[in-house]
Simulated scan of single mutants.
Amino acid sequence: MEYTSGGSSWTRAMRRLGRAMLPRRRPERSFAWSVLTPVVFAVAGMLFSLSAATAKGTDLRDDRRPELTNLIGARKQELAASRERAARLRAEIDTQQRRQAGTDGQVDEQRQRGDAEQAAAGLTAVRGPGVVVVLNDAPRRADGSRPAGATPDDLVVHQQDVQAVVNALWSGRAEAMTLMGVRVISTSAVRCVGNTLLLDGQVYSPPFEIAAIGDQAGLQRALEVSEGVRLFKEAADTFGLGYQVRVEADVQAKAYDGSTALRAARSGS
């Protein structure tokens, strides 16, 4: 067994005690951190100031949906008022033309010519036997799931689907047609925004109803041979879209009451 001298052990103990009593040196902070810290605080303060000035005491993340809903409602009311005013003005013009026709032979001749073309232009009400086609989006499932292999676009009626039905009914020699109760004429444009229909400035949601007056057998045949209608029927069978054809003895089509002004025209020859 090896022994150490008492003096040596005592000396080492005193050294350790002395080192323990000395103050520890703090690690030196890096120069980059010392510079970046005030910069970060300065930028953060500037952002807070800009946010406060922009908000002006309001919540910047406030939900804007109620405001948008009110704006849409106001625009619909303005559009309805404009349509009513336009109808009144057209009625006044018609009254003045009829009065003038009684005193001017040329005006009377052109007036009679125009009256003869009103029915073909869709400006008179029509009723008779026909068919009604209804297109609808696929119903939503309770759990929010979709049919296998389906995308969101597969489950809604699109613009080309409505156009396919309208074109098929015209090719079946429809005498008159309405879409959502609105008379369809040669200048009518069928447009869809999302899964809503835009027609003559009005927005309609599905189901979309197209009614046509004419030979019922011919209208049905035209629907059956239409390629666009066939594709929609296949999608309806696969994804659950709605497609219905009704034969009705009395279909009513009111006169077109929108604007008949043309901005441009091109000869078909």
Rank of each mutant, 00 (worst) to 15 (best):
G122V: 12
P139G: 10
Q159W: 03
T54M: 11
V107Y: 08
A121E: 15
Q97P: 03
A81K: 07
D63I: 08
L68W: 09
A116G: 09
G172M: 04
K56S: 12
R64V: 09
V131M: 00
F48H: 08
I72L: 06
W170H: 02
T95I: 08
F48M: 09
R113N: 09
Q100H: 11
V126T: 15
P129D: 09
W170S: 00
R88N: 03
E117F: 14
P147K: 03
M180R: 05
D161S: 10
D137T: 13
R146I: 04
A174S: 01
G149W: 02
L89V: 12
Q163A: 14
A74V: 03
G128K: 13
A174R: 00
A55T: 03
G45W: 07
G102R: 15
K56F: 11
A53Y: 09
R98L: 10
A176H: 00
M177I: 13
A81D: 07
V156F: 07
G57R: 01
M46N: 10
R99K: 14
M46E: 13
L68G: 02
A168W: 14
A164K: 02
R90A: 14
Q160M: 04
R75S: 06
A138I: 11
V126G: 02
R61Q: 08
E84A: 02
N70S: 07
G73K: 07
A91C: 04
T103M: 11
I72N: 04
V157H: 01
T95H: 13
R61V: 06
L135E: 01
Q160F: 06
A138K: 12
L47Q: 10
E92P: 05
R111Y: 14
E78L: 05
A53L: 13
G128A: 13
G172I: 06
L60K: 07
K76N: 04
Q160H: 10
A121K: 15
A55F: 08
L89I: 12
V131S: 00
P147F: 02
V132A: 01
V166M: 02
V131Q: 00
R85K: 05
